[in-house]
Every structure is written in C-alpha cells, then in structure tokens.
Computed example of a mutant assay.
Amino acid sequence: MSWKGFFEGIQSFFEEVAFAPFEALRSMELSSWWGANVMSWLFLLIGFVAFIYWMRELKAINERGEEDRSQTSHSYLG
C-alpha cells in the first residue's frame, strides 16, 4: 500500500460515509428552508443548553464561596 492509496482511502471514507448525512441535507435545501438549516438549529440548541448549564455552575460556585476573590489570588496580579 502506498501513501497515495492511504490518502485516497481517507478521501473515499469521508466522501461516501462520514459526509453522507450532509449530502442528504444538501439535497433537501431547495425544498425546505427549515430542513436546510436543521444542523444550524441543532448547534444553536446545543450551545444554548451548554451556556445555561455553565451559568448555573458558576452561580453555584459563587454561592458556595469556593473562589478566591482577593486581588492577590494570582501571583502576577499582586
């Protein structure tokens, strides 16, 4: 097996297997705006849920007082 064959195998995998769902979405693009943007909505939803989770964790840490808020908490600040 040569390096060329190795890289052609990677190309074949991604073109025919890994990106198959995106090809299906691209074929749906002209028929429905919602269908064409389903991945964008999915990523937006994941980001929103992660943001809410992170804000709740920060609030819980703040309420427990675990964070050192003094000005010299880091050596480069003092």
Rank of each mutant, 00 (worst) to 15 (best):
G35F: 11
Y53D: 05
I46A: 14
S31G: 13
K4V: 06
R56E: 12
A50F: 11
S75T: 04
E8M: 05
L44R: 06
S73N: 13
S70C: 02
E67C: 01
S12R: 11
L30R: 15
L25F: 12
F43Q: 13
G47E: 05
G35L: 10
Q11I: 00
Q11E: 05
R64Q: 09
Q11S: 04
W3T: 08
S40M: 14
I46C: 07
S2L: 01
M28A: 09
F51N: 05
A36Q: 15
F51W: 11
R56V: 07
H74M: 04
V38I: 14
L58Y: 03
S32W: 06
S12P: 00
V49C: 14
Q71G: 10
V17S: 06
K4H: 03
N62T: 04
E16W: 01
E57C: 04
A24I: 09
A20M: 09
V38D: 13
F48T: 15
W3K: 04
S12M: 03
P21F: 05
Q71C: 04
L77I: 00
K59F: 05
I52H: 03
E29K: 10
W3E: 06
A50I: 12
E16L: 01
E23W: 15
E63Q: 09
L25M: 11
L45R: 13
F51M: 07
N37T: 10
F7L: 04
A50M: 10
S31A: 11
Q71Y: 07
E63W: 02
G5P: 01
L42Y: 12
P21G: 08
G9Q: 03
I52N: 02
F19Y: 11
E63Y: 01
S12T: 03
M1D: 04
N62V: 00
S27C: 14
A24C: 09
E15W: 05
